[in-house]
Simulated assay, not measured.
Amino acid sequence: MPALFFAILSEAKPWLTKLDAKPISHSGKFRIFQKENHYIVISGTGKLSIALAVSEFAHIFTKTERNQMKVWNLGIAGSTNSEHTLGDFFWANKITDVSSQRDFYPDRILNSKFQKETNLKTFDRPVTKDHTKDRFLSLNENELQNISLVDMEGSGFFEAASLYFPLENIAVGKVVSDHLEGNFCKAEDVETMMAKTMEGLFDEWKTPLPWVSADPIESIDWPIVESFIQNLRLTETMKHDLKKSVRFYRLRHPHSQLPFPEEPDKSNLKSKTDLKNYFDKWRHSLHV
Rank of each mutant, 00 (worst) to 15 (best):
F184G: 09
S112H: 02
P126C: 06
N73L: 03
L269S: 06
V176D: 00
Q34M: 07
N67R: 10
L180V: 04
E263I: 08
L16T: 04
R252M: 05
E153K: 08
E218D: 15
L275C: 10
G154I: 14
E236K: 12
L242A: 12
F57L: 09
F89A: 06
D189R: 05
I32C: 13
F5I: 12
R233I: 07
T96R: 10
V71C: 07
A92D: 03
F248K: 13
D221L: 15
L4V: 08
F228N: 07
Q34A: 09
E226A: 11
H179K: 02
K281R: 08
K129W: 06
E56L: 01
E168F: 00
E226H: 04
I8T: 09
N37E: 10
L209R: 10
I24F: 00
F5K: 07
D178S: 15
E236D: 01
V98K: 14
P208E: 11
D134R: 05
T80N: 07
V98E: 14
D178M: 12
K22H: 11
S227L: 11
V212K: 05
A53V: 03
K270F: 07
A12P: 12
D265K: 14
I170W: 03
W72F: 14
W211S: 15
L48D: 10
D241L: 07
A171H: 13
N111P: 00
P2D: 04
R252T: 02
V54L: 13
M198G: 15
T237Y: 13
K22N: 11
N277P: 02
P106T: 04
